[in-house]
């Protein structure tokens, strides 16, 4: 899922300081699961914003609603009535949701979250980055551990000379992905596969090829 974290409430408040009626739109997708932009977080943020603004002598009215998904026109269109009277929209979705709302509504739309990465939960309250979205998966070559995002240098023929005691040179809190890859390949009896020199990556499949698009004609309607 997409992992996102809330911005500081003061930063969000500053984005809508001149608005009198603000719609806070949560998302029931990934950000609900990672506890940053679901129904509960949306209501808390609305209350915090109201309190701040009242203390400043500039009260604000809030509307809260949580969309099923903000990354789908179907659910975004359903917000028409909700945001009708608002002079700004605060989206508690990932960057995708913010853009869908901005595209749909002729209003000031601002992000309440910083979209961090795609990953999963380690334990409740801890999420870890796992995929670099490079568009050309190499996990079959690296024992199921992604060197693109989990190695701080995205090295395909690692580990670099900064790997020591299983940790990355950038921090003792960061595992060296290539140590993990080595250990895993060793336990699978496939160390010989690491002797192949991995060629340079074709980054056109990644962000470097420009904004990406996925099309499945077989499921398109009409």
């Amino acid at each position: 899922m997409i992992i996102a974290q809330q911005k500081q409430i003061k930063e969000i408040a500053a984005m809508v300081s001149d608005c009198k009626k603000v719609a806070l739109i949560g998302c029931a997708g990934c950000v609900t699961v990672c506890l940053s932009g679901g129904e509960k977080e949306t209501e808390i943020m609305a209350a915090a914003l109201r309190i701040m603004r009242k203390l400043e002598g500039n009260p604000v009215e809030t509307i809260t609603f949580t969309a099923t998904r903000q990354c789908d026109p179907e659910y975004v269109e359903a917000l028409d009535g909700v945001v009708k009277d608002a002079d700004a929209i605060i989206s508690l979705a990932c960057g995708v949701g913010v853009q869908y709302l901005a595209e749909r509504f002729d209003k000031w739309v601002v992000p309440a979250l910083d979209t961090n990465f795609i990953g999963g939960s380690k334990v409740h309250g801890v999420w870890e980055e796992k995929c670099g979205m490079c568009g050309d998966c190499v996990l079959h070559k690296t024992g199921g551990i992604c060197p693109i995002i989990r190695c701080s240098k995205s090295i395909l023929n690692g580990p670099c000379g900064g790997s020591q005691y299983g940790k990355c040179e950038i921090s003792k809190d960061v595992d060296c992905a290539w140590q993990l890859i080595y250990d895993r390949m060793k336990s699978l009896g496939k160390l010989d596969k690491l002797m192949a020199i991995q060629p340079p990556k074709d980054w056109t499949k990644s962000r470097d090829g420009g904004p990406r698009r996925a099309v499945r004609e077989d499921v398109m309607i009409g």
Partner: peptide
Amino acid sequence: KLLDEIGI
């Protein structure tokens, strides 16, 4: 912490 941030 939040109450500190929002001024209460």
